Computed example of a mutant assay.
Amino acid sequence: MSDTSSALRIVWIYPDLLSTYGDQGNVLVLKRRAELRGIPTETVRVLSSDPVPEQGDVYLLGGGEDRPQTLAAQRLRSDGGLKRAAEAGAAVFAVCAGYQIVGESFGDDDDNPLPGVGILDVRSGRGETRAVGEIVADVDPALGAGRITGFENHQGRTAVGPSARPLSATVAGIGNGSGTEGAVQGQVLGTYLHGPALPRNPALADMLLSWRVGELAPLPPAWGERLHEERLAAALQ
């Protein structure tokens, strides 16, 4: 955890621009699963007018429309705090618009390439059709998060560069558009999964926590695991 705090610092980036699909749920589940294990937490809510603190443990970015996405990318590049935190070893979890923002480039509403924050080796553009619906994917076995489920609603198509690797292989849905979904590079993880992703995938939440606090004590199955199984069954029927 951060050297300046005894609590796990969860930093929610720009909820005024990037919280279109209930992304606060990711914050709440990460906090809850830490505290169930006796890990104290502190949640830092960073508006787009605020500087991004560099001493966080886990940074969360959510989804957004085209114009807010462009504005968020501009401000994050200008501020530099997120990039410095990632380079120092913080975990970053970025969803949909946030996933594209943390990459090297993404397309605006006319598919003109715009620069991203540059902490994940991916490049995104716009596909001919929109990906809408349930998505299921198998996470890279080396990461240990199993099968994940979510809801996608995007027109993005994302190419994963050599410094990153796909987060998962798609079983159902579009994801990156190449048979894969999401990307991971060090402790930076991007995904198109909404739902929100962490309430639907408790193993994914625990993976993020473990990146900062080490091995976690197991928790008894609860509503998160039940939701996960229910959504998997519904998506694959």
Rank of each mutant, 00 (worst) to 15 (best):
S2D: 03
S2P: 04
S2H: 06
T4S: 14
A7R: 14
A7L: 03
V11R: 02
V11S: 00
I13Y: 02
Y14M: 10
D16A: 05
S19F: 00
Y21E: 01
Y21G: 00
G22F: 09
G22P: 10
D23Y: 12
G25F: 03
V29T: 15
K31L: 05
R33N: 07
A34V: 09
L36P: 08
G38A: 14
V44M: 04
R45S: 04
R45Y: 07
R45A: 05
S48D: 13
S49H: 12
S49R: 14
D50Q: 04
D50W: 02
D50H: 10
D50E: 07
P51F: 04
P53I: 11
G56P: 05
Y59M: 03
G63V: 01
R67F: 14
Q69S: 14
Q69E: 15
A72N: 07
R75T: 08
G81K: 14
L82Q: 06
R84M: 12
R84L: 12
E87V: 13
A91R: 02
A91P: 12
V92G: 04
F93G: 09
F93Y: 13
A94D: 08
C96D: 06
A97M: 04
Y99C: 01
Y99R: 02
Y99A: 02
Q100T: 00
G107A: 11
G107P: 10
D111F: 01
N112W: 08
N112H: 14
P113I: 01
L114Q: 15
P115I: 06
G116I: 05
V117D: 00
G118E: 14
G118C: 13
D121C: 02
V122R: 15
V122H: 14
R123Y: 03
S124W: 10
G125T: 07
R126C: 00
E128S: 11
I135H: 05
I135N: 04
D138N: 12
D140S: 15
D140K: 13
L143T: 12
L143Y: 12
A145M: 13
A145T: 06
I148W: 10
I148K: 07
T149S: 08
E152N: 01
Q155F: 03
G156A: 09
V160T: 06
P162E: 09
P162Y: 04
S163K: 14
L167R: 01
S168P: 14
S168E: 11
G173W: 03
G179F: 06
E181I: 00
A183L: 12
V184Y: 04
G186I: 08
G186M: 09
Q187I: 05
Q187R: 15
L189S: 13
G190M: 03
T191K: 11
L193I: 09
L193A: 11
P196A: 07
P196N: 07
P199Y: 07
P199G: 08
P199S: 03
P199I: 07
N201R: 10
P202W: 08
P202G: 05
A203C: 06
A205H: 09
M207I: 02
L208V: 05
L208E: 08
L209T: 01
S210R: 11
W211D: 02
L216H: 05
A217M: 01
G224W: 14
E225F: 11
L227N: 05
E230Y: 05
E230S: 13
R231L: 15
L232R: 07
A233I: 00
L236Q: 06
Q237T: 03
